[in-house]
Design a protein around this nucleic acid. Structure first.
Lengths: 159, 159
DNA sequence: GATGATGTCTCGCTCAGCGAGATACCATGC
DNA sequence: GCATGGTATCTCGCTGAGCGAGACATCATC
């Protein structure tokens, strides 16, 4: 049972600490982006989630968004209000099921996000491109393994 | 300039999306841990940051903690109040500089965090252990590259 | 011992998110 | 057709995290 993270740890623990500092830096970066654009961290998470489900082809609704972010319905309404007021999102009544509201992300919001995160994404891609096939495969299997581990632990008890 | 993330993308984009879903799952998990233990996401981030600087040997103070989390002094005081009320942290006047308050993390808080995140850490370590030396090296170089990219982007404009 | 800098805390406020419940709509039964 | 239950969203009132401004104590320097 390893614990202290000083130098000279195993490769596994070094990977763990690198991952952690990546997540810390990432949400610091996200916070800065949010602050610069007058939106809250939650708003940013919401936009990212919206773009995600949009690409998956599923139409986004307040209900799904709220569940994704762990907000209740009241908080979700307030969130969508904010996004709509800022012009990042439009509410459109679903013609098929008129209880539903579909959320359409404005193109400028997409462009905004891509302008900020695009360069970072390109850098990560270029890091991966430096490896040979075996290296790329290792990276991908590692990430997949970590994602599955985290997701499994996130799914076990409640929800 | 790649964009859509559907299947059949390059290895680089797949890595990007895996990384993103890892971070999403991780902070969902963190949120759950926080909720289960009656503390807010910020409190969890604070505890993690405190453990970090403690391991680095630097004594933790409200000032440093607030800067780390991006809170102002009022918010930091409120945060430390909460942590102290919950018994996770103790305030100790610094004898050398009596303006300062040193923050000592309670052993039970450390144990709590390790009980929750320890198994996940072990799993990540075991994922890494499955690779040969070349694979481990690739993973580490990848993570280092990503961390540097994120940190560089986080440092450029303000702060 | 006065002066400025620094670390922490207090006060009053704003606003994100919660719980409870209202409202509108769909999908069944009769 | 019309009641009944389920679902999606929104409204209302409230709690509390975090902010700005400033108070206070302590250190460093002259």
């Amino acid at each position: 049972m390893p614990e202290s993270p000083v130098e000279g740890q195993g490769a596994g623990m070094r990977a763990v600490h690198l991952l952690r500092s990546i997540t810390v830096e990432l949400d610091r970066l996200g916070g800065r982006f949010a602050a610069e654009n007058g939106l809250h961290p939650t708003d940013l998470r919401a936009l990212i989630a919206l773009l995600d489900v949009a690409r998956a082809g599923v139409p986004a609704t307040p209900g799904r968004l709220g569940a994704e972010l762990g907000l209740n319905s009241a908080g979700t309404t307030a969130l969508v209000d904010r996004l709509e007021r800022a012009g990042h999102v439009r509410r459109v009544r679903d013609a098929a099921d008129r209880r539903r509201v579909l959320l359409e992300v404005d193109d400028r919001a997409v462009a905004l996000g891509q302008g900020f995160f695009g360069p970072l994404i390109d850098e990560v891609v270029s890091v991966v491109d430096q490896f040979d096939d075996a290296g790329r495969d290792a990276v991908e299997r590692f990430l997949t393994g970590v994602r599955d581990a985290v997701a499994a632990r996130g799914a076990d008890s409640s929800r």
